[in-house]
Design a protein around this nucleic acid. Structure first.
Length: 294
DNA sequence: CACTTGACCTGTCCGC
DNA sequence: TGCGGACAGGTCAAGT
């Protein structure tokens, strides 16, 4: 469930808490969650953290080597930070952390810093991973290699989106938007929201979209992602912010998991269908299967 | 080659 | 109350 806004929220929080921290030890509680050699980052200092789509990339180094930690949370992954310096640790999220014990049974990897601060990687369903590789090999990572454009990249323009759509005119728009090799970072929640605001039915084909619909879709993608970041992400079941708190985006969704509830624009009950195995929410009135004339 | 489907997992919820 | 099954969804290998 963590999509671009959730991972971006974690990136920002991590940048305030673990930059310049030196890794003392790495404890792996479930082997398959770790790819690579944890010894490689012992005594490494974290000096840079960035994000590609839903993937978090942490640069570490010491005198001899430069490594990278790639973290994918998939559906139920969590990163939780426990500081020794309680007074200095206030991330300021709107919903404060529950006092969930750390570590717990979903804790898969524990990273302890020289400060004795601890970063926990939890994942109930164990779909996520933490991967340690040489920094020179980042460009060869099989996932990163195929990932598409960043929605907030300057190169992502209306023309770029039009080009992507024109190139694959026979795809259903929702799976198209979920395809990480085309646009990076959209998942089920933000895709449904973006289609609602652009008044496009999720089963429309890419080739059927008009220029003005593509324009609306472009604006909607950026707006819902920004709104998600502003709300510190969407906490449904498992996603939490770095301090264990919750994002508030779900209180502000228009369609996601609002089936049966009135559309905020026209009061028609929101519908839910299954599209390619994904729960898909939309307003049957506002989002027509043919282009709207407006 | 481009696209689609099922598998990977486990906690939660619903109906019987 | 207990149990089985559906469901949740990001990615990738396998299939079309």
């Amino acid at each position: 469930m963590p999509e671009l806004p959730e991972v971006e929220t974690l990136r920002r929080d991590l940048s305030r808490t673990v930059i310049n921290q030196t890794i003392k030890s790495v404890e792996v509680h479930q082997q398959k969650m770790l790819i690579g050699d944890s010894q490689e980052i012992i005594n490494h200092t974290i000096n840079h953290i960035y994000r590609r789509g839903k993937l978090l990339i942490i640069h570490t180094q010491n005198q001899d080597s430069h490594s990278a930690i790639l973290i994918h949370l998939k559906m139920t992954g969590q990163l939780v930070f426990k500081s020794q310096n309680i007074a200095g640790f206030a991330l300021g999220h709107p919903i404060p952390p529950l006092n969930t014990p750390m570590p717990n049974k979903s804790t898969k990897i524990t990273i302890t810093f020289q400060s004795n601060d601890i970063l926990y990687f939890n994942d109930i369903r164990t779909f996520g991973y933490l991967k340690i590789i040489d920094q020179d090999k980042i460009a060869h990572d099989t996932f990163l290699k195929t990932i598409g454009i960043e929605p907030f990249d300057q190169k992502f323009t209306k023309e770029y989106l039009t080009m992507l759509i024109t190139k694959s005119p026979n795809l259903i728009i929702k799976p198209f938007l979920l395809d990480q090799t085309k646009i990076a970072g959209l998942g089920n929640i933000y895709t449904d929201e973006a289609l609602f605001y652009s008044k496009i039915h999720p089963t429309r084909t890419t080739g059927s979209l008009t220029i003005s619909e593509i324009s609306l879709l472009y604006d909607a993608i950026k707006q819902v992602l920004q709104k998600g970041i502003d709300h510190h992400g969407a906490s449904k079941t498992s996603y939490v912010t770095l301090d264990g708190g919750q994002g508030t985006f779900l209180a502000n969704v228009a369609v996601y998991q609002r089936q049966g509830k009135p559309c905020e624009r026209c009061k028609t009950p929101i519908a839910k269908i299954k599209l390619r195995g994904r729960g898909t929410h939309f307003c049957p009135q506002c989002q027509q299967v043919t282009p709207s004339s407006t």
